[in-house]
């Protein structure tokens, strides 16, 4: 061995508050990075959707067209389109540059909780309180969904898409994994209403948070539980959870105003990041960098691994 093994870098947690953005759009229902992580999208309860620059914290564009508070947003892989869903039962496909509504998709019977593009932004998947996930085609001019997944017995609270899999968390306490390639549904019973689901970055595990104040890491293929993370408070609200950029940590919002970081393997609480006094409703982790977004009430916080000036130099 000519070269020594590179020393494993200590993973840095985004614990430094880089910026706080007053969004001026009521409560921020969801905060999301765009596809490349340079911009931030915030869903406001005042029916607007806003696009921000992460590095400068400036407002770039406001998208208006929803009839009620916006609940979730996703950007396409090329950042040319956005899809958002709202309490007004609609899903809207936006053109990012012009801010125009490309398509307004109606069909859900209740408010739409979550929305996602598939990998190539050819399909929009939206999950609603009416218990269905609708697959909308963005390529054709049809206004009817391609398929309606109505297996859930209660409202859909969260939904994620990988290459060929749909991960859908429902209030009926089950996480459903639709495998398109195999043509199967795997239903994992959690018991408590699911608030958020996500895939791990390596695509082997699923993470699901539920209203019993627990986050569970399940093996995707077998459904076995790999880790259980608790300590935070999640009893009534639809809070987000996610994994850090290298799958080292599990993150979850909490109703006590903190963001909890657990070590993925050990399951121990590694950081309790104080955000504020209210409920941390939404969070999103950067794809590649240790950067975190949190949303509390009308504000969005950007967290980085290093203090502000260093981060600025990087940027």
């Amino acid at each position: 061995m000519a070269f020594p093994q590179p020393r494993p870098q200590v993973t840095q947690l985004p614990q430094h508050l880089l910026r706080t953005v007053e969004c001026q759009q009521g409560a921020v229902r969801a905060v999301r990075f765009n596809a490349d992580g340079n911009y931030v999208l915030t869903c406001g309860s005042d029916k607007s959707l806003k696009l921000w620059s992460v590095s400068r914290g400036t407002l770039l564009k406001t998208y208006t067209g929803h009839g009620y508070e916006v609940l979730d947003v996703d950007s396409s892989y090329d950042n040319s389109q956005l899809c958002s869903c709202s309490s007004d039962k609609t899903v809207i496909l936006w053109d990012v540059a012009s801010g125009q509504v490309t398509r307004k998709l109606r069909g859900h019977a209740g408010k739409v909780n979550c929305v996602q593009f598939n990998e190539e932004a050819t399909v929009i998947l939206s999950g609603s309180i009416d218990g269905t996930v609708r697959c909308w085609d963005t390529r054709s001019r049809r206004y009817e969904p391609i398929q309606i997944l109505d297996e859930a017995r209660d409202g859909i609270s969260s939904l994620k898409v990988s290459e060929h899999e749909l991960l859908i968390g429902s209030v009926d306490g089950r996480v459903r994994l639709y495998d398109l390639r195999m043509g199967q549904i795997h239903v994992d019973f959690i018991g408590s209403p699911i608030t958020c689901v996500c895939f791990s970055r390596d695509g082997q595990c699923t993470l699901s948070s539920s209203l019993d104040s627990t986050v569970r890491l399940l093996d995707k293929s077998t459904g076995e539980m790999l880790g259980e993370y608790s300590g935070h408070v999640n009893k009534g609200y639809k809070l987000d959870c996610c994994l850090s950029e290298k799958d080292t940590h599990v993150l979850s919002c909490s109703e006590d105003g903190h963001v909890y970081f657990w070590d993925l393997v050990e399951g121990s609480l590694s950081l309790k990041l104080p955000v504020g006094k209210a409920v941390v409703q939404s969070l999103d982790f950067h794809q590649t960098e240790p950067r975190l977004l949190t949303a509390m009430e009308g504000q969005v916080q950007v967290w980085g691994a290093e203090p502000e000036d260093a981060a600025v130099e990087d940027g």
Binding site: G26, A27, R29, S45, E69, L71, N113, I129, D154, G155, S157, V171, P193, T195, L211, G236, Y237, K238, L239, E255, G257, K277, A278, V279, Q281, E297, G298
Partner: peptide
């Protein structure tokens, strides 16, 4: 039905 959304703003 389902988990609620937190209120737009409050002081605990």
């Amino acid at each position: 039905f389902g988990p609620r959304l937190p209120p737009p703003g409050f002081i605990p």
